[in-house]
Design a protein around this nucleic acid. Structure first.
Lengths: 104, 104
DNA sequence: AGGCAGTACCGTGCAATGCAAGGTACTGTG
DNA sequence: CACAGTACCTTGCATTGCACGGTACTGCCT
């Protein structure tokens, strides 16, 4: 898989998954890994950045399977950002398809 | 448009367009610009790199509308690379769609 | 004649981001 | 008590798009 394709898209996937329900980092790594090859070193910096930018709020919750989990909850600002990013992606994918199918 | 989405994809569009028929740089900028906002500073380095990697061959052709055009012709190696890149893209886009529509 | 818009090429340096690699620490099981 | 699994985190590198700047040729308008 061309790793460059991932640029910007993994952030969008994180946004989308957190918008569906609260998530913790390790969980996101596992969820995205089912579809795309990624590592923890990718996710944690994204979570930190999106939190700093006001798209996420965090809270800790103890777990009986290891250390406490840091959950990410989407803010209203985050929700609107997620929506516009997803729309941009859809538009972008359509544009690329048109270019790939252009036969002259 | 999130500029990060472009990473790797513009290269693929260049490959696809040259695979349909020989193209020169400025022409590619115009063709891709109809769908995605890009600049010449993006295309020329890509063309240089793909040529160095053996995916393109070049030849000059005079024009009556300005300076001579440098045409890019796809090699066999380039054709196989284009095919696998396009397949990867299709697969990738499907994976992203699945992640975006994952509602729990 | 001179200037300008359009065509066409090229290079440099910055910003963004994914990832490899490494580290810490908690829990339950063999 | 070691180890696998869970869970967090940081640093530095590589890639790549793009802003910006530069060169040069053609034809048109004044």
């Amino acid at each position: 898989m061309n790793p460059q394709f991932h640029k910007g898209v993994i952030e969008m996937c994180v946004l989308s998954l957190v918008s569906a329900r609260d998530r913790y980092g390790y969980e996101l790594v596992e969820a995205i890994s089912t579809e795309l090859p990624i590592s923890e070193g990718t996710i944690y910096p994204i979570l930190r950045r999106l939190t700093q930018e006001g798209y996420f709020e965090t809270y800790l919750q103890e777990s009986n399977e290891g250390p406490p989990r840091k959950y990410y909850r989407m803010t209203r600002k985050g929700r609107s950002f997620t929506d516009s990013t997803a729309k941009e992606w859809t538009q972008f994918a359509k544009s690329v398809d048109r270019l790939l199918n252009q036969k002259n």
